[in-house]
Design a binder for these strands. Structure first.
Length: 609
DNA sequence: CTAGGGTTAG
C-alpha cells in the first residue's frame, strides 16, 4: 500500500538546495553547524597531532569527542590538513564528525580532502566518498569545480576526482547532474574517462534520451576521451533502438577507424534493432555477414532472431531458427523458450505454446514469471479470462511471484471485457501482496474506462495516479486524446496536447492522428489540416496512418480530388498504401462506379477523372 | 562495464 507513496516526495529543487557562492563560505569560522551542540571557535587552541591521529586510528571516538568539544569539528579538520596527517585518518575523522556530530563542512574542505586522497592514490575511498555525496549533493557542480580548480592540480588529481564524481552521479540516478559535470569538465579542461562516460551513456540509452547520447558521444570523440568497444556498442544500441540505422552504421565505421572490430555483441545489437523495426531482411543479411566474417552467432543471436520472426508473424521461420541453433550445438535457454512461447501466444497458437512449456520443463528448464506472463497474455488474447486468472494462482503455487506485468496483463484483459470491477479487485490484490502499480497499470485501467465511453472516470483515475506520484506518460495522453476525439470533444483533446508540451512530452504520430481524425469527424477539415501542419513543425512527418486519416476525412466530405492528391503525395514520399488505405478508397471508388485493381499502383491514377 | 524474453495507445 505504502509503496505508492514512496514516489510522492517532491522533486528536489536545484535552485534552493545548493549553497550559493557566498564569500562567507570561505570563512573558516562558519564552515559547519551542529544542531545539538554549541561549539565555539577556538582558533588559538593547540592540538597534539600524533595523539589525535592515534585516537582516530584506534577509533577512540569518545576521547576524541571531548577534544572536539573544546573547539569545533571544522577547526580540528583544518588542523589535520595543516599538520599533514594521513589522508585515511582525516577521512575517518570527516565521516565520523558528519555522522555523529552532524558536522557540515564547506566545499573547500570537502575538495581538499578529495585532493589528499587522490594524491595518496586512495581511489576506492574517493569513489565511496563521492558515492555518498551524490546521494545528497549538498554542493553544486559549479562550486565543486571552482573549488577544485582553485586548489590546483598535482598530476591529474582533479580529472580523476571529477571522473569519479560523474560516475557517482550516474550510479545514484542523477543523470542530469552527471551531464552537467561532463559539460563542466570540458570547460575546465578536466579529462574524463570511459569509466564514467560509458555508464552515463548506458543510463541515457535506458532513459531513451538518444539525442543526448549522440551529442555526448561526439563530444567524447572530440575531447579524445579514451573510448573503448563498450562505448561504441552502447551508442550503436541507442541509435538502433530509435531506428537511426544509418547513424548506427556510421558509428560502426567510427569504431573500425579507432581500431576496434565489431564483435558478436555489435552484430547482435544491430540485428536486434532491425528485428524490432520489422526489417527481418536486414537482420538476415547481417546474420550472413557475421558468419562470413567468422564471428560466431551465440544463443543471444538466435534468441533475437526467434523473437524477431515471431513479431513478424512468421512462427515457421522462428521454429526453423530454433532447430538451427541446436544443430549448431547451442542449447536453447529459458529466454529462447520464452521468446518462442510468447511468439506462439501472440500469433494465436496457444496450444503449441503450452506444449512448449511442458517441453522446456522436460529439458530441465524451469518456466519463470516471464513464461507465465506470456501464457497469461495468450489466454487473454483468446478471451479465456478464467484460464488466465487461474494461471495467476499457478504462479504462486510454483513458488514464483507474479509481478506488475502479470497484473497489468490481466487488468487490461478485464478492462477490454468490460469487467472493470474485476480489474479493480486485481489492483487491490496487487497492493495487498506488495506489487506496486505503475503507469502501465493505470493506463490499462484508464483505457478500460475509455472503452465504455467513460472519459470522465478515466481522467479522474489519471488525476489519482498523479496524486500517487506517478506521472502520466505518452501512452496515458494518447489514450485520453484518442477517447476524447472519438467522443467528439476534440477541443478538450487539444488542451491535453498543450499539456503534453508543457510537461515536456513529445506527442507521437498517434496523438496527432487522433486529433486529425477528431476534427474531421466534427467536419472541421481546416482545423484537421492545421494539426497536420503543427505535427510537421514539431518534427513528426506524416506516416501511413496520418495519410489514411486524411484521405478518409476528405473522402467522407466528398472531396475526392483532395483525397487523390494526398494519395499521390504519400506515394511520392515512398509510403506504401496499406490495406486500410485500400479499403477507404475502395468504398468511394465503388460508389463512383470505379472497379479497383489489385495492383498497388492503381491509386496513382486519378480517382475523380 | 555493452547484446536477448513478458503488459498499456493503434
Amino acid at each position: 500500500m505504502n509503496c505508492l507513496r514512496l514516489t510522492q516526495f517532491p522533486k528536489r529543487c536545484v535552485s534552493t538546495r545548493f549553497p550559493s557562492l557566498d564569500p562567507k563560505l570561505n570563512n573558516t569560522k562558519t564552515p559547519f553547524s551542529s544542531p545539538n551542540s554549541t561549539y565555539t571557535t577556538l582558533n588559538s587552541h593547540t592540538f597534539d597531532t600524533p595523539t589525535i591521529s592515534q585516537l582516530i586510528a584506534k577509533q577512540h571516538w569518545s576521547k576524541l569527542k571531548t577534544i572536539v568539544k573544546e573547539t569545533n569539528p571544522g577547526s580540528l579538520l583544518q588542523h589535520l590538513f595543516n599538520s599533514e596527517a594521513q589522508p585515511d585518518l582525516i577521512l575517518s575523522y570527516f565521516k565520523w564528525t558528519q555522522k555523529e556530530l552532524g558536522a557540515i563542512y564547506n566545499v573547500e574542505q570537502f575538495c581538499r580532502l578529495l585532493h589528499l586522497l587522490a594524491n595518496a592514490k586512495n581511489y576506492n575511498k574517493i569513489r565511496a566518498l563521492l558515492d555518498s555525496f551524490a546521494k545528497h549533493a549538498h554542493y553544486s557542480n559549479s562550486i565543486i569545480f571552482h573549488s577544485l580548480s582553485v586548489l590546483g592540480s598535482w598530476g591529474c588529481a582533479n580529472s580523476i576526482i571529477v571522473d569519479m564524481l560523474v560516475w557517482a552521479y550516474v550510479k545514484n540516478g542523477e543523470i542530469d547532474l552527471a551531464l552537467e559535470g561532463f559539460d563542466r569538465a570540458g570547460d575546465y579542461g578536466f579529462r574524463l574517462s570511459a569509466l564514467s562516460c560509458n555508464p552515463m551513456l548506458i543510463s541515457l540509452v535506458k532513459e531513451g534520451r538518444i539525442g543526448v547520447v549522440e551529442s555526448v558521444y561526439k563530444e567524447m570523440i572530440r575531447r579524445r576521451i579514451g573510448v573503448n568497444v563498450v562505448t561504441f556498442d552502447v551508442v550503436i544500441n541507442g541509435l538502433c533502438k530509435v531506428g537511426k540505422f544509418q547513424k548506427a552504421e556510421d558509428v560502426v565505421e567510427d569504431m573500425k577507424a579507432w581500431g576496434f572490430s565489431p564483435s558478436v555483441i555489435t552484430y547482435n545489437t544491430v540485428i536486434d534493432g532491425y528485428c524490432k523495426a520489422g526489417k527481418m531482411y536486414k537482420a538476415d543479411a547481417l546474420l550472413k555477414e557475421m558468419v562470413a566474417k567468422r564471428i560466431h552467432p551465440n544463443e543471444i543471436t538466435f534468441n533475437i532472431l526467434i523473437d524477431g520472426f515471431c513479431r513478424d508473424e512468421n512462427v515457421t521461420a522462428a521454429k526453423k531458427v530454433f532447430e538451427e541453433m541446436q544443430r549448431q550445438g547451442l542449447q536453447p535457454n529459458v529466454v529462447t523458450y520464452n521468446s518462442l512461447i510468447n511468439g506462439l501466444c501472440i500469433n494465436g497458437k496457444l496450444d503449441e505454446a503450452l506444449g512448449l512449456q511442458d517441453k522446456m520443463s522436460g529439458m530441465g528448464l524451469k518456466p519463470n514469471v516471464v513464461t507465465y506472463n506470456a501464457l497469461i497474455n495468450g489466454f487473454c488474447k483468446k478471451k479465456m479470462l478464467k484460464e488466465a486468472r487461474e494461471m495467476l494462482d499457478d504462479i504462486g503455487k510454483r513458488g514464483l511471484a507474479p509481478n506488475v506485468i502479470t497484473f497489468n496483463t490481466l487488468i487490461d484483459a478485464y478492462g477490454k471485457a468490460g469487467r472493470m470491477d474485476d480489474a479493480f479487485s486485481l489492483r487491490g490484490m496487487m497492493l495487498d501482496i506488495g506489487v506496486c502499480p505503475n503507469v502501465s497499470t493505470y493506463n490499462c485501467l484508464i483505457v478500460g474506462f475509455c472503452r465504455e465511453g467513460n472519459v470522465k472516470e478515466a481522467r479522474k483515475l489519471a488525476k489519482e495516479m498523479e496524486g500517487n506520484g506517478l506521472k502520466a506518460d505518452l501512452v496515458t495522453y494518447n489514450i485520453l486524446v484518442d477517447a476524447l476525439c472519438k467522443k467528439g470533444e476534440t477541443r478538450k483533446a487539444v488542451r491535453l496536447l498543450d499539456e503534453m508540451f508543457e510537461v515536456g512530452l513529445n506527442p507521437s504520430h498517434l496523438t496527432y492522428n487522433a486529433l486529425i481524425d477528431g476534427y474531421f469527424r466534427e467536419g472541421n477539415s481546416t482545423a484537421a489540416l492545421n494539426v497536420r501542419t503543427l505535427m510537421e513543425k514539431k518534427g513528426r512527418r506524416a506516416n501511413i496512418v496520418t495519410y489514411n486519416v486524411l484521405i478518409k476525412g476528405f473522402c467522407n466530405k466528398g472531396k475526392l480530388e483532395e483525397a487523390n492528391r494526398l494519395l499521390n503525395e504519400m506515394l511520392e514520399k515512398g509510403l506504401i498504401p496499406n490495406r486500410t488505405t485500400y479499403e477507404i478508397l475502395r468504398d468511394e471508388m465503388m460508389e463512383k462506379g470505379f472497379i479497383p485493381d489489385v495492383d498497388g499502383h492503381l491509386y496513382n491514377v486519378s480517382i475523380s477523372s
